[in-house]
């Protein structure tokens, strides 16, 4: 979603995005936020520049915001990190809160099972090296 009109979105797909991706377009709706009205609600609208900054919101199937990230324009996002967070939140949701993903978790790594038995024992389950790849 940006403050561009849907007409500009079409021109961008036709003239630039189509040259970047083999599918020639993107498989999700490109939303137009005229006046930054949605951006204002989500706290990403920069009044001075008149644009929505690089905000990313992860919303679960119940419509709950589980995570967000906000960057100023010159630095791009890390898509892999967004996917990792979705995978982590999906595990937590499927376990109905009986599992949690510690720092550095990614698919295939150990999850934690929070509860009285784990109090003061995280050091046995999780090492600092696990925070890194």
């Amino acid at each position: 979603m940006s403050t561009d009109s849907v007409f500009v979105h079409k021109m961008w797909v036709d003239h630039e995005l189509s040259k970047m991706v083999s599918a020639k377009t993107v498989p999700f709706p490109m939303l137009s936020d005229g006046g930054g009205n949605v951006g204002k609600i989500f706290g990403v609208y920069d009044e001075d520049a008149g644009v929505d900054v690089r905000g990313r919101f992860l919303i679960d199937p119940d419509g709950i915001v589980q995570a967000y990230e906000m960057l100023t324009p010159p630095v791009g996002r890390n898509v892999s990190e967004t996917l990792r967070q979705i995978q982590a939140y999906q595990i937590v949701r499927e376990s109905e809160g009986t599992q949690a993903t510690p720092s550095g978790w990614k698919p295939g790594k150990e999850v934690l099972k929070p509860g009285p038995d784990l109090v003061g024992k995280v050091w046995k389950e999780w090492k600092v090296t696990m925070a890194f790849d």
């Binding site: 940006s2 990403v44 929505d52 919303i59 791009g76």
Partner: peptide, 24 residues
């Protein structure tokens, strides 16, 4: 026309960005 609530039941990534034809 897209309404956010149409996506209830699915995971949604809502991304804002400064503009088409910008550099990043």
């Amino acid at each position: 026309s897209v309404q956010l609530s149409e996506y209830l039941g699915k995971w949604v990534v809502l991304c804002f960005y400064p503009g088409d034809f910008t550099f990043v």
